[in-house]
Design a protein around this nucleic acid. Structure first.
Lengths: 248, 248
DNA sequence: CCCAACGCTTGATACAAATCAAGGAGAGCG
DNA sequence: CGCTCTCCTTGATTTGTATCAAGCGTTGGG
């Protein structure tokens, strides 16, 4: 199997990941890559399919090669909250304690690079640096979760939707379509349905739709089609999101 | 210095912590305790004082010996959200990356057991198990944050207040005041003001106050005084919190 | 002692977002 | 082609929570 896929984001010589994750993705030695190649298994998941459930223990962990995964929690009466989004080249799964406390569901078509749990835990012993990188990742996930708590608890519907767009633009934008400042113009795809956005933001689909319309009317974003957007000024979008320039 | 205080929750022979944190708190060898005793420094913080700021890098990490610490984030216009509460014997501070992304403020009088950052990072090298325990802790914090996201995004004001009481009762209750089932009667102290509760739950103080009154009228809780509560039936409180028995 | 400050509660009113309801655009299919 | 289905938008109405406002009890200081 191609190193690029073994790589994903966590264990990686993959250029893409190295750029995105900087120091976390230290290069592995050839024999380590070789080792990984032997235990890894590729898998493709269709949109809407469940990848991990909170009921059955997960027997694998995975690098996300492409696509978007929703981590969801659902109350007994059906109210749902998305507690995390994972994009390539994120890492899916918990190293310790096999059981997940939430569902992982494919939001788009997803390609995974799976490590059987038992094998992966052996890796943790063999390559001590691996646990450290997992730890760094978990710290960043915690920061993101806490950032999101501010959004859920204290932002208005318009700020929530704008913040969501900022997050997406930053994570997946094709930046700088001709403008002199690369921050000036960002185009991005929306990998989620309105229902998913609502579950992310603690809103209803109608409110999400209305707020997108409002941002469109104010010319904060241009809606190319319901799944792709253009941001004329990142600063204005950030202002609508209630973020000052100092923030992430 | 007494081992109990060196211990806190993270690095510990402390019985209290061992009970609360189980396997995470492996016993240290006598020379390790000795090593810790040499670098640790005790500190007391008054309610309302800032312990860590997101502006200046933190030069220390700490075990919480007693008291409650709020982790807060504030938007530029002053709206505030509490993104975490830490009780004794939790661990305060980030191992990697000195800068905090939030404020840590004493909610009550707090006693800390501080490790200078430089010394602590040497410890991480000397005792590899230490990083692992920190990692486990971080995973639990992440779970708690995601649990809280469901509350912030999808629960009603009444469910939020009831959930908050469940959390407090579980973390700090004097359980089983005479009832045959230890789950039957729980009494707990409220270490936070109404304003803090509101900032935790994404509500206003007025709404918090009204919902506490509602729970009182429904006899879900008895208000002994504005800072202490009695829960006649944990099951009823959980029902009011929108938690089924299977949940945390 | 009085007075101000603080934390908390309660009431009246306003408003943002939910809910209820209808319809349009596009995809897939017989 | 017509059909259904899903996703999305928009409008009318309701409702839960915020906001504004007043007052109570306790604490601490002059």
């Amino acid at each position: 199997m191609d190193d690029r896929y073994v790589a994903g984001g966590l264990i990686s010589r993959c250029e893409h990941c190295a750029v995105r994750n900087g120091a976390v993705c230290g290069a592995l030695k050839p024999d380590e890559i070789e080792h990984l190649n032997r235990i890894v298994r590729r898998r493709t998941v269709k949109p809407g399919e469940t990848i991990l459930s909170d009921e059955e223990p997960a027997d694998f962990l995975a690098n996300i090669v492409s696509g978007v995964i929703k981590l969801t929690k659902t109350l007994s009466d059906g109210r749902q909250q998305i507690v995390g989004l994972q994009f390539a080249p994120d890492f899916l799964g918990r190293a310790y304690g096999a059981s997940h406390r939430y569902f992982a569901e494919a939001a788009t078509e997803v390609e995974l690079c799976c490590f059987p749990r038992a094998e992966f835990e052996k890796l943790l012993v063999i390559y001590p640096d691996l646990e450290h990188r997992l730890f760094e990742r978990t710290l960043r996930e915690l920061d993101a979760a806490r950032e999101w708590m501010v959004l859920l608890g204290r932002k208005t519907a318009e700020e929530k939707v704008a913040s969501f767009m900022v997050m997406l633009a930053r994570r997946s934008a094709i930046i700088g379509c001709g403008g002199k400042d690369p921050q000036d113009v960002a185009r991005f795809m929306m990998p989620l349905t309105r229902a998913d956005i609502a579950d992310c933001l603690g809103l209803t689909i109608e409110t999400v739709s209305r707020q997108i319309t409002r941002l469109k009317v104010q010319s904060v974003v241009r809606v190319l089609d319901s799944r792709s957007f253009l941001v004329p000024s990142m600063d204005r979008l950030c202002a609508a999101a209630g973020l000052d320039s100092t923030e992430i």
